[in-house]
């Protein structure tokens, strides 16, 4: 319970950066932190106390393993997170080249 709540606090820290900061890089950092928190929460939810990692071994009882399903899907999620981060950073670099600033309140002249 306290572990879940600490994970939620980490998510809230990322959410604060997304909501309050005005620098684009800080907003991207906030998104990355939110992503960490969500991945960690899903893996925490599949953890079984005092069990072993989900890799077969000849001398083991078969049901004493942690949940492999959240781990597999989080593996997918981590890689997609890297791709989306690269995309957002690319957009931020282009915005900096065009407007000369990362401040979102100074980027007014958005043209299509």
């Amino acid at each position: 319970m306290i572990t879940y709540f600490l994970c939620l606090v980490l998510f809230a820290v990322g959410l604060y950066a997304v909501l309050r900061k005005r620098n684009l890089i800080k907003i991207i950092i906030g998104i990355v932190i939110c992503e960490y928190a969500v991945n960690l929460f899903l893996v925490l939810f599949g953890y079984r106390m005092n069990n072993r990692s989900p890799i077969y071994d000849p001398d083991q009882v078969i049901t004493k393993m942690v949940d492999p399903l959240p781990q597999a899907l989080v593996l997918t999620s981590i890689v997609i997170g890297l791709a989306t981060t690269a995309l957002v950073v690319g957009i931020a670099i282009r915005i900096y080249e065009k407007y000369g600033t990362f401040d979102i309140t100074k980027i007014r002249k958005l043209r299509g």
């Binding site: 991945n39 925490l44 989900p54 593996l75 981590i78």
Partner: peptide, 14 residues
């Protein structure tokens, strides 16, 4: 620590 070695390796690289 959470017994997910594949995720640890991937997270390190990423």
């Amino acid at each position: 620590v959470l017994k997910a070695p594949d995720l640890a390796i991937t997270q390190l690289v990423v």
